[in-house]
Amino acid sequence: MTARPALEIAVTSPAGARAARENGADRVELCTALELGGVTPSAALVEAVAAEGLPVQVLVRCRPGDFVHDAEELDLMAAEVRSVIASGAAGVVIGALNADGTLDVPAVARLAEAARSAGRPVEVTLHRAVDQSADPVATAALLPSLGLTRVLTSGGAPSAAEGLATIAAMAAAAPGVDVMAGGGVRLGDIPALVSAGVGSVHLSAKVRAPRRPGGTWVPMGAGGTSAEQDTHFVTDPGVVARARRALDDLA
């Protein structure tokens, strides 16, 4: 029997991890600054989310923007990998590209080795740098030789539904690697994604938190152009529960 596809929820807090666990998620991906595509969380946040009980995959990304990293950034991310694993992460979510859009194999291998240096089993996921690579299928084909656990992808498209054919080709090109569909996934997309061969489905399941005014509002960086937009995202328990049901209905 084919294994049931796993449900991973992107979270930014212990409350988000609880909502994911209580509504049927199999694991969470933890980051901060989800509004910017996510960056590495603090060690204290990793510890707090790990205490909620689900396996925690931690995004290690030292800054927003592109995925071409210099030596100093790679040094920092290698240290961050070791830190989050020591803080209780079950795995890390990493990635790096060369300027020509190919996978930076030495960088990815180095970050994966940093994760495994803890001396216990850990999972290593290639993040959506794959979707900005010159050839997502060719990139996926490299992953078995690197020993990576999974790859998070929209098939190089704005959403996973639009990248369905590429996702299927990636699954065929990377035997033994869990190809996880993520990026604009809607509940109605789940049957087609599973039919394409994905082993996991990733949702942010996010909703804007209501703003709690603390006085006069002024714009501060990337927070938005109005007080209504200047909030953060939280996990919607209802979306998690409906995604769980959608996956279970396919079993």
Results as ranks from 00 to 15, higher is better:
residue 1 M to E: 13
residue 4 R to V: 10
residue 4 R to F: 10
residue 7 L to G: 10
residue 8 E to K: 02
residue 10 A to Q: 00
residue 12 T to D: 12
residue 14 P to Y: 02
residue 15 A to L: 05
residue 16 G to N: 05
residue 16 G to S: 10
residue 17 A to T: 04
residue 18 R to W: 10
residue 18 R to N: 09
residue 19 A to Q: 09
residue 21 R to K: 15
residue 26 D to F: 07
residue 27 R to C: 04
residue 27 R to N: 08
residue 30 L to N: 01
residue 30 L to S: 00
residue 31 C to W: 00
residue 32 T to A: 11
residue 33 A to L: 09
residue 34 L to M: 15
residue 37 G to Q: 09
residue 37 G to P: 07
residue 37 G to S: 11
residue 38 G to S: 11
residue 39 V to I: 15
residue 40 T to R: 05
residue 41 P to C: 08
residue 45 L to A: 05
residue 45 L to K: 02
residue 50 A to I: 00
residue 51 A to Q: 11
residue 51 A to E: 07
residue 51 A to V: 01
residue 54 L to H: 05
residue 54 L to S: 03
residue 54 L to M: 10
residue 55 P to C: 06
residue 55 P to V: 03
residue 55 P to T: 10
residue 60 V to K: 04
residue 63 R to I: 09
residue 67 F to Y: 07
residue 69 H to T: 07
residue 69 H to E: 11
residue 78 A to V: 14
residue 78 A to D: 13
residue 80 E to H: 08
residue 81 V to E: 06
residue 83 S to H: 05
residue 84 V to Y: 02
residue 84 V to W: 02
residue 88 G to I: 01
residue 88 G to P: 05
residue 93 V to E: 02
residue 93 V to A: 00
residue 94 I to D: 03
residue 96 A to Y: 03
residue 98 N to W: 01
residue 105 V to M: 03
residue 106 P to H: 08
residue 108 V to I: 14
residue 108 V to H: 05
residue 113 E to A: 15
residue 115 A to M: 07
residue 115 A to T: 08
residue 118 A to Q: 10
residue 118 A to N: 07
residue 118 A to S: 15
residue 119 G to H: 08
residue 124 V to T: 10
residue 127 H to K: 06
residue 128 R to P: 04
residue 129 A to G: 06
residue 133 S to L: 04
residue 134 A to T: 12
residue 135 D to F: 00
residue 136 P to N: 09
residue 137 V to Q: 04
residue 137 V to L: 10
residue 139 T to V: 00
residue 140 A to V: 00
residue 144 P to S: 13
residue 145 S to T: 14
residue 146 L to H: 07
residue 147 G to N: 09
residue 149 T to C: 03
residue 149 T to R: 08
residue 150 R to C: 00
residue 153 T to F: 01
residue 156 G to W: 00
residue 163 G to A: 12
residue 163 G to T: 10
residue 164 L to T: 09
residue 166 T to E: 04
residue 170 M to V: 01
residue 171 A to I: 03
residue 177 V to I: 15
residue 178 D to Q: 11
residue 180 M to A: 09
residue 181 A to N: 06
residue 182 G to K: 01
residue 183 G to C: 09
residue 184 G to D: 09
residue 186 R to I: 07
residue 190 I to W: 01
residue 190 I to H: 03
residue 196 A to W: 01
residue 197 G to K: 11
residue 200 S to D: 05
residue 200 S to H: 06
residue 200 S to L: 05
residue 203 L to I: 15
residue 206 K to H: 13
residue 206 K to I: 05
residue 206 K to G: 11
residue 207 V to W: 02
residue 217 W to T: 12
residue 220 M to P: 03
residue 222 A to H: 15
residue 226 S to W: 13
residue 226 S to H: 13
residue 226 S to Q: 13
residue 226 S to E: 11
residue 226 S to K: 14
residue 229 Q to N: 13
residue 229 Q to I: 06
residue 229 Q to P: 09
residue 236 D to S: 13
residue 236 D to G: 11
residue 237 P to Y: 08
residue 238 G to Q: 14
residue 238 G to R: 14
residue 239 V to I: 15
residue 240 V to H: 09
residue 241 A to D: 11
residue 242 R to L: 15
residue 244 R to F: 12
residue 247 L to H: 12
residue 250 L to V: 12
